[in-house]
Amino acid sequence: METTTMVPATALTVEAENADPKSQGRLALSARRKKPFRWALWSTLTVIGLFAFLPIYWLAVTSVTPNDQVFAYPPSLVPTEVTFEHYVSVFANPAIFGYLKNSIIVSVVTAVLSVVVSMYMGYAFSKFRFRGRKSLMYFVLSSQMFPQALLLVTLYVVFAQFGLLNTYQALIISFTTFTLPLCVWMLKGFFDALPDDLIEAAKIDGAGPWRTFHSVILPLALPGLVAAGLFAFVRGWNDFMFALTLAGPEKQTLPPGLVNTFIFEASAAWPALMAASLLVSAPVCIAFIFLQRFLVGGITAGAVKG
């Protein structure tokens, strides 16, 4: 029996190039040419990084700055005096944890509901052929064309008629409605990328459509489901206007709750607001760090079909 040793292609290339002085010269030239490109790349990344992270850094700095120094001019990137009194004041305010609880309930249920509904819709659009499929798909997407603020008044009246104002249901139904179109399209793209052969193989093994979907397709679609769920979660977590209008004082979520607590008629408790924002964002940020690989994988899954 003949045996072969696998050598990585890159190693072979490097070895060959090292042996040839002309190739070495080309490598040096290439490295010199790449240097400005690398500088440009790093400069661009630095600017983008600053753009993304400076506000968060500033938020953190403000949260430990004494009230009388928040607007000091010229502003200082490093606080000259540090205080944790704003964090203490946040912990001393039980209402904030009530808002946090409401946010978690609304966002989690929205995410779960969006994923459950959109996974079936996305699968149907992707793998089944029925009359009006494309029209229906675009019809679903067309609901995204309406400015959401425009729908607020209408939804308010509808929820009032059904006695749903000031309830979690009002927020969950609204947010799920808004997130469904994108989730459906996102998951459809994900299911499109899964080969039909898998379904055929399951069918040959005796699995019905239901079993095929739940036992074969869904486990493979996990990154897409997580991505769709995170998208829906973020939508529910960040909303201000609907939460302020539909939830009422008892079911208010964090965005309106924090504004209500720290922004006043003639002033604002900026450091305490920043401290509260940091504290309540921490659990979500940690969850995102663990789930971000699904988010990126899920969103891009349908993008390179072909």
Binding site: K127, F130, R131, L136
Partner: peptide, 8 residues
């Protein structure tokens, strides 16, 4: 699989 949903 076909669902009986026509354009009308």
């Amino acid at each position: 699989m076909t669902v009986n949903l026509n354009r009308r």
